[in-house]
Structure formats: C-alpha cells, structure tokens
Simulated assay, not measured.
Amino acid sequence: MTLMLPAGPAQARSIAGVAPDLLASLRGESETLPPVSSTVLVVVDGLGALPLRAHAGHARTLTAAMSKKDAAASVFPTTTAAALTTLLTGEMPGAHGLVGYRVRDPRRDVLVNQLTEWEGAGIDPLTWQAQPTVFERAVSAGHPAFAVGFAGHAHSGFTHATLRGASFVPAGRPAERVATAWDLAERNPGALVYCYLPETDKAGHKHGVDSAEWVAALEDIDAALRLTVPPGVGVLVTADHGMVDVPAHRQVVLDESDGWHDGVRHIGGEPRMLHVYLEQDADAAAVLGRWRRDLEGLADVLPRDEAIAAGLFGPEVSDAATARIGDILAIARGNRALYDGAAEDQRGRNMVGQHGALTPEEWRVPYLRFGGFAA
C-alpha cells in the first residue's frame, strides 16, 4: 500500500513557508504578505482550522479574519515537535530531523521524548536539529529577533533546537504574552517576534476539544488578540497542528500477551502515529503483515521506505532523519488511538484530545493576518 498526504484546498499553503515569508516581508520581497516595519508570528498550539470554525462564536477576533482560504497544511506527523520545528526553520521534518514525539536515538538505541528529554538523553540540540532557525537567519540579516513564552521554557533542549538566535522574553498569561510581543515589535524596528500560546493544546489534551475548558482557553486567547496591533507591524496567527477527541472506547491497546511485541524492540511516536522499531533479527515482512492484518480498518500501516517515498516527511529526508523513523509506521484512522500495552507509563490513556495522524482536524490549521498584514 502507498499512503499519500491528504488533499487540501487549491489555495492551501504549508506551514513550512511561514518563516521564509515573514523574513521576506521585512525586506518587502514577499509575494503573499505586504511590507511591514516589524513582524510577529503567533502560534496557537493545537488549534486546528476546523475546530476553530466550529467554535466561531467563542473566537470572534480570530474568525473575523478567517475566510475559507485562510488555512495552511501542517506536517506529518501532526505533532508539536515536528510541526513547530517546521514553523521555526522553514524545513520539513525529513530535513530538520524531529520526526515524531518519541523517536529512537540510533546511537544509544533508546526512545527520546523530543520535547522534554534532551538533556537527560545527552542529545545536543545543535547537531540533532542542525537547520538554521528563522531567528538565526533574521539576526544574520540585521533584524532583532525575540521569542515570548513561559519562563520555564527558556533553557530547554527543545528551545535551543528551535528558538536559537532569538532573545527569550518570559511572560505569563496569554494577554501578557501578546502585549509583550506587540511592544517588542513596536520598539524594535525590523524585528521578528515569536509569541507562543499553548493553552488550547493543554486544555484539549486534558478535557477534549468540545469541552468547556477548551472553549475557555480559546476565549482567553481570542480576547488577548483583540489588542490593537501597533502601526506598521504585521501579525500572522497560525498553529502547529489541530486535534481530535478520542473517547475511551476508541482506544486500541496493543497488549504484549497478544503478540504485538513479537519482533518489536521499541514502540515510539504517540498514540495517533506510532513509530515501530524492529529487532535486528526480526522478519520485517512478517511483522508488517501481522500489523496490517490486525489493524485493518483501524490504522494505515506502512514500512519506512514507503512513507519516505510517499513524501510524508517532506521531499527530502536526511540520513539522520531516516535513522530515527520507525521501521513500520501505524497511523490511526478516524478518532482512534493506539497504545503500547507494555509501556510502563499508561497516563497517556487519560488524554482526550490527541493528534499526530492525518485527519483534516489535525492537518489543517488557521493562517490569519492582522495589523500590517491585513491591509
């Protein structure tokens, strides 16, 4: 079988083009964005275009700027580590190398959480993610660069991999982060400012996209973005991915007693998109056949070479990225999730909102222009 990326509307753009376009707008050379004195990139983590439209009454600021064409395509897998790195480098996962949530470090043959385990796993952000960030490119061109986010994120390995080149500015609630971003852009002509808003992603994981908690988080962000954009500043609001709600009865548990781990050394990724790493002496064809048979109708299962050939990770996949991709990929269909029953930590089964696969809810994200970009 060959799995292709989902089709989007004819006007759809990729989030991989956001960073280069923002830099071009500062030079007056963008084909899609007007020239501006400074620019702000606002990323609302986990906010899909379809869930946003479905809750338009709770996000009047965002949806007032949103037409049918104001959407962009995320990347595969639709997870923060992969998609946010694409947004901040302009490169697809096959090039920047963050190809999933938990992937194998080939050097040590262990799974590493790409958001939180850099230091403990001894991974160097400068080599694991070697592509220049949009902030490094901005600074090299003479533009000030800033990243506004939680103080606790300032020195993480993931921050060093994706935000290097930017001066990190901590701020609290969404309204404070937005106000700080607007102020930095106004006081620093030519600046590129990044503002990270993860509240919808957190509420969605814990309570679900249709929950009162998720709606409250969306309303809080929408209210923050009502703040008037300073003259000459262009603001682009987008997301890394969306999400779907997975009820408990849609969970598929891969129990060791049922033979799911025969020939399997590690199961990484996340419940909506598993990286399956095989033992060196495993019969790869037999394992692939078994997974395909037993997950028929529940997930798309394909070997690494087919996934790469289909362009799932982008047009070019480096040797380093290839070594991190599972021998087999299992991509959940619909609103199902696949859980490793042998994993010590089963807390993930409490998550309601999830992402990583290829549904339109996960794949399509808003692409909204404010301030100088809305002109």
Rank of each mutant, 00 (worst) to 15 (best):
P170L: 08
A181I: 02
E199A: 04
V193N: 02
L192A: 13
W182V: 09
L197V: 07
L197T: 06
H207M: 00
T200Y: 01
D201S: 01
P198I: 11
P189R: 13
T180F: 07
E176V: 04
T180L: 01
V193P: 03
Y194D: 02
G208C: 11
V178R: 08
T162G: 02
D201V: 03
R187V: 12
R177W: 09
A166F: 09
T162Q: 01
G190F: 02
D201E: 05
C195I: 10
V169E: 07
A171S: 02
D210V: 06
E186V: 14
A179G: 09
F168T: 05
A179M: 11
A171P: 01
E186H: 15
A161V: 04
A191G: 00
E186S: 10
R187N: 09
E186M: 14
D183W: 15
K206A: 15
A179K: 06
A191P: 01
R187Y: 06
R173Q: 08
D183R: 15
A203W: 07
P174V: 02
K202Y: 08
R187G: 03
H205S: 05
H160Y: 10
T162R: 00
N188V: 14
P189C: 08
A191H: 00
G172C: 01
G165P: 07
V209E: 06
H160L: 07
G190R: 00
G172R: 08
G172E: 14
L184F: 12
P198V: 10
L184W: 06
R173M: 06
H205V: 13
A161Q: 04
R187C: 07
S167C: 07
L197C: 04
H160R: 12
A203M: 08
V209T: 13
P174N: 04
R187S: 13
H207I: 00
E186Y: 15
G172Q: 08
T180D: 02
P174L: 03
K206E: 15
A181T: 02
A166H: 10
L163I: 07
A175I: 05
G165M: 06
F168S: 03
A179N: 09
N188L: 13
Y194E: 04
R187E: 14
K206D: 15
V169A: 02
T180E: 13
L163E: 09
A161Y: 02
T162H: 03
L184Q: 00
E186P: 05
G165I: 12
H160S: 13
R173S: 06
H207G: 03
A185Q: 08
T162P: 10
S167F: 07
K206F: 15
A179Q: 14
V169R: 06
L184E: 00
D210I: 10
T180S: 06
E199M: 04
G208N: 13
A203I: 12
P189N: 10
G208P: 14
A181L: 09
V209S: 11
C195T: 10
Y196H: 07
K202T: 15
H205T: 12
R173H: 04
P189Y: 14
A179R: 10
V193R: 00
D183Y: 15
W182G: 00
G165Y: 07
Y194H: 05
R173P: 03
P174Q: 07
D183V: 06
S167H: 13
P198F: 10
A166S: 12
P198W: 08
D183M: 11
